[in-house]
Amino acid sequence: MISVMVVDDQRYERLGLALMLKGAEGIRIVAQAENGREAVDALAAASGDEMPDVVLMDVRMPMMDGIDATRIITRAHPGVKVLVLTTYDQDDYALGGLSAGASGFLLKDVTSAELADAVRAVASGDAVLTPRITRKVLGRCFPSSPLASPRGSAPMHKGSFSSLTPREAEVASLVADGFSNAEIAERLVVEPASVRRYVSRILAKTGLRDRVQVAVAWVRAKM
Rank of each mutant, 00 (worst) to 15 (best):
M1Q: 11
I2N: 00
I2P: 03
S3T: 15
S3F: 08
S3D: 09
S3W: 04
V4I: 10
V7C: 05
D8K: 09
Q10V: 15
Q10N: 15
Q10K: 13
R11Q: 14
Y12C: 15
R14C: 09
R14P: 03
L15Q: 15
L15R: 15
L21H: 07
K22E: 13
G23F: 06
A24N: 02
A24W: 04
G26P: 07
I29D: 06
A31H: 05
Q32W: 01
E34V: 07
E34R: 12
E34Q: 14
N35D: 13
E38S: 07
A39F: 00
A42F: 02
A44S: 11
S47H: 12
M51V: 14
P52A: 09
P52T: 04
D53I: 00
V54Y: 06
L56P: 06
V59L: 10
V59F: 06
V59S: 02
P62L: 07
P62Q: 08
M64H: 03
D65Y: 06
D65A: 00
I67T: 04
I67Y: 05
T70F: 01
I73M: 00
T74D: 00
R75A: 12
R75C: 05
H77L: 02
H77Y: 08
K81R: 12
V82C: 04
Y88P: 09
D91H: 14
D91W: 10
D92H: 13
A94F: 09
L95S: 10
A100P: 05
G101I: 02
G101S: 03
G101Y: 01
G101Q: 03
A102D: 04
S103K: 08
S103M: 14
G104T: 06
K108V: 08
A113E: 14
A116W: 06
A116F: 05
A118D: 08
V119M: 03
A121K: 09
V122R: 00
V122A: 08
A123V: 06
A123Q: 04
A123N: 01
S124V: 01
A127F: 03
L129W: 01
L129H: 10
T130D: 13
T130V: 14
P131K: 08
P131N: 02
R132L: 14
T134S: 15
K136E: 15
L138S: 04
G139L: 08
R140S: 14
R140T: 13
R140A: 15
F142S: 14
F142Y: 12
F142D: 10
S144Y: 15
A148P: 07
S149M: 07
P150K: 08
R151I: 09
G152Y: 03
G152L: 08
S153Y: 08
S153N: 12
A154Q: 11
P155G: 09
P155V: 01
M156N: 10
H157D: 12
K158I: 12
G159H: 05
G159A: 05
L164M: 04
E168M: 11
A169C: 11
E170F: 12
V171M: 03
A172F: 02
V175D: 00
G178C: 02
I184Q: 01
A185D: 00
L188E: 10
V189H: 13
V190Q: 07
E191A: 13
E191K: 13
A193Q: 13
A193I: 10
A193V: 14
V195S: 01
R196C: 09
Y198T: 11
V199C: 05
S200G: 14
A204Q: 12
V214N: 00
V214G: 01
W218N: 11
V219H: 09
V219T: 14
V219Q: 09
V219R: 05
K222A: 12
K222S: 15
M223G: 14
